[in-house]
Write a protein that binds this DNA or RNA. Structure first.
Length: 139
DNA sequence: GCCAACGTTGGC
DNA sequence: GCCAACGTTGGC
């Protein structure tokens, strides 16, 4: 299984809205960046991703699961970009903030810090478990 | 095909 | 509100 991190501005689409969608999941559309697109296309059903709130909060608030692999984004008229469907899996008992990640030596190479503008990015297994622990999940 | 100008994102 | 990073656009 692969791990990812997806970003959203809570003004546009928040964790609470994602949770409200429940098991049905929701389309993760609107990506207009080719690097992000490549990552979307690597996602497999069952992969997990951190849900990060950019701008407001600047913290990882929960975990989502990929429930549908990439397909054309109907909101993209050029037909170039793709999207996936994700569903909320569980919240982090303690959201992990950007400041905490920066202060953690093991996480200093995270794409989140190096490619701050990339909205869909890979997370290593080591980073995943470290953040889960910081977030109060026991695993 | 290069590169300057410009727009957007996102942290501060 | 500012600015750095970076992607895109357009002139040459």
């Amino acid at each position: 299984m692969a791990y990812w991190l997806i970003k959203s501005e809570p003004d546009a689409w928040s964790w609470d809205q994602q949770v409200a969608k429940g098991a049905a999941g929701e389309a993760w559309s609107g990506v207009r960046n080719h690097t992000a697109k490549l990552n979307l296309m690597k996602m497999k059903k069952g992969d997990r991703a951190f849900f990060y709130h950019s701008n407001i909060g600047k913290e990882i608030v929960g975990i989502v699961q990929i429930v549908r692999e990439h397909y054309p984004d109907p909101s993209d008229k050029t037909g170039v970009f793709v999207m996936v469907d994700v569903k909320a899996l569980e919240p982090l008992p303690k959201p992990v903030t950007l400041a905490q990640i920066k202060a953690t030596p093991a996480l200093k190479n995270m794409a989140l810090l190096k490619l701050s503008r990339l909205s869909v990015q890979p997370v290593t297994a080591g980073e995943w478990s470290a953040i889960c622990r910081m977030g109060g999940l026991k695993r």
